[in-house]
Amino acid sequence: MNTKRLSDMMEKALSDQMNKEILASHVFLSYGIWADDKGYGGIANFLYRHAQEERNHSIKFMEYVLNRGGKPKVEAIPAPPQDPESLSACFDGVFQHEVDNTTSIYRLVDLALEEKDWATWNFMQWFVQEQIEEETLAQNLIDKLKIAGGDRASDESLFTLDKALQDAPNDVPLAQEATGANP
C-alpha cells in the first residue's frame, strides 16, 4: 500500500527547501568564522547560533517529508560565498539570504495552496512566521551597525555592538523549539 501523502512535486520542493536551509547554515557558519577571525567574538557567536538554527530548520523539513511518507533527498550544497569585506557586507548578506529564503517559503505555500495540500500549507505557516522574525532580526543587525557608525564605526562602538550580540539570548522566539530531536 502506498502511504505517501505528498505529490512528487511537493516532495521535491520540500527536499529542495531542506537543502536550502542546510546551505543557509553553511553561509552563517562561514560568516561566523570570518567574524571570529576578525576578533568579533560576539558577532561570531550570534552567527554560529543562527547557523545551528538554520540546520534545525532543515531537520524540520526532513522529518515532515518522512512523516508524510516521502523520502527527502540530500543534494550537494554549493560553497558559501567568499568572506565579506566588512561588517556591513556581512549583515547585508545575512539580510539578503533571509529575503531569498522568504521567497522560497512563499513558493512552497503557493504550491501547497495550488495542490490543496492543507497539511503542508499548515506546516508552512510556522515558516512564514519564522521568516518575518528572521528578516526583522537581520534588519535590526543592519540598523544597529548603522547606529554604531557603519563601516566607519569607532572601535568602541564596534566593541559595544559585539558585546551586545554576545550577550543576546541563545534562543529565538519560535525557533528555540526546532532541534534535531524536536523539529
Rank of each mutant, 00 (worst) to 15 (best):
A119K: 13
Y31R: 01
Y64V: 05
A119R: 08
E85R: 01
E134Q: 05
S154E: 07
G39S: 04
K146V: 15
K116H: 12
T120R: 02
N170R: 09
F159P: 00
G150M: 07
K73H: 13
I59P: 00
Q176T: 11
N170Q: 12
G150Y: 10
S154R: 02
R55M: 12
M18N: 05
L87Y: 05
Q17K: 03
K144L: 12
L158W: 07
L108H: 00
N2K: 13
Y40K: 06
L145G: 06
S7W: 01
E114C: 06
I132A: 11
D151W: 07
D16G: 07
I33R: 05
K163G: 01
A89E: 10
A79S: 12
D8S: 08
V74A: 08
P72G: 06
M1I: 14
L145Y: 04
C90M: 09
F159T: 10
D143N: 12
M9V: 13
F95R: 07
K73Y: 14
D16N: 14
Q139H: 15
V109W: 06
S25W: 00
E63G: 03
F123A: 03
I132D: 04
Q131R: 05
M9A: 12
A119G: 14
V128Y: 03
A76N: 08
T160R: 06
P81H: 02
L29H: 09
E85F: 04
L47A: 08
A168Q: 11
P183H: 07
S58G: 08
G42M: 02
L165V: 13
K12Y: 12
E75S: 08
P169E: 10
Q129H: 10
L174S: 13
S154G: 09
N122M: 04
G93H: 09
D167P: 01
A89Y: 10
D16W: 01
I77E: 00
Y64W: 14
T120V: 08
Q125C: 00
N101S: 15
L47W: 04
W126E: 06
D92P: 00
K73T: 14
I147W: 00
L87P: 04
N182K: 11
L14S: 04
A168H: 10
Q166F: 14
A164F: 11
H57R: 03
P78C: 00
L108M: 04
L161T: 07
H50M: 02
V94F: 08
V99F: 04
S58T: 04
A175C: 12
A24Q: 04
L29F: 14
R49G: 09
D155N: 10
G42I: 11
G70K: 00
P80F: 03
Q96K: 12
Y48F: 15
V65K: 03
K4E: 02
K20Q: 15
I59N: 01
V94S: 02
P80C: 05
A51Y: 05
S30G: 00
L23P: 02
Q96C: 06
P84F: 01
F159H: 11
